[in-house]
Nucleic acid binder design. Sequence first.
DNA 1: AATTCTCCCAACCGCGAAAGA
DNA 2: TTCTTTCGCGGTTGGGAGAAT
Length: 326
Amino acid sequence: MGRPPCCDKVGVKKGPWTPEEDIILVSYIQEHGPGNWRSVPTNTGLLRCSKSCRLRWTNYLRPGIKRGNFTEHEEKMIIHLQALLGNRWAAMASYLPQRTDNDIKNYWNTHLKKKLKKLQDGKNDDGFSSASQQCKGQWERRLQTDIRLAKKALYEALSLDKSSSLTDTKPSTTNVSHPSTRPHQVEGSAYASSAENIARLLENWMKKSPKPAQTNSDTTQTSFNNAVATNSSSSEGAHSETALDHHGFDSLFSFNSSNSPDASQSVDENANLTPETSLFQDESKPNMENQVPFSLLEKWLFDEGGAQGPEDLINMCLEDNTVGDF
DNA sequence: AATTCTCCCAACCGCGAAAGA
DNA sequence: TTCTTTCGCGGTTGGGAGAAT
């Protein structure tokens, strides 16, 4: 279609983002919400292309992103999902709301691929301690079993959720629980360590230049301030795991809560593993995006008639030591 | 201590899909 | 229906940080 690259323009800055740029972007999104990225550089004065702004937000600045080491459970999830979905990182990310597709992709490429390759080669290292006893054939059989179980789980989830998730294409306000009543994300809700710095900067910056309350958020601005304050006060000496406490994150989430479904159940805790549980599903393309994996998987599952059991993916991941047996 | 190597991740690029005129 | 614009995804890469020599 001959679309010129958005970043070809002269004067568009590339490379690492500065804290100042982050502040500008975050404060703009706080006021206007994510989306309409085309207008972001224009309205903020950032010398960045819209794509760069979007990526910076979704991969780094967005509240609720957990950074740092992946847990063993997350590893298992990723391995399972990769087996199921292939390299569909965005779809996988919808099952790990605290991780970005970029993070998952990076982690897969830099860690898990190697790990699995090592295991396949019959070598063993840390992490998958029992693998040394497993021959490649066993590993593959196990993987097949896992895939089958995951398919069952997805089928089950589909049959349970279909009426609601597939018919309810708009973010349901009735699903929105009050922040205080929502189950929290898994422990370890975290903002990037460098984002902690940004948060501190923001705090100072907002103190200096308080903004009038805006559109969808008298609470928004307040919430964000609270979150930032919470963060800055609690992050002293704290690693990413404690960068923002739960209140902070609830507050942060609330700026979109008017149209967000109850998305607070973490993957770890959520027995009904559905993309609809994604914390940020409404930020860009509400349900459509998250329907995609299901549409494809539905077809796959129904083609193969895979309903065989009530286990769900999460429980499978949590309860069996499948990957540990790799 | 200096240099080289390796690893990792944030950011970029290009493509296709979706939305809109 | 066609064309243009915008968005989102997946692959790739540049460069910083730490390890090794």
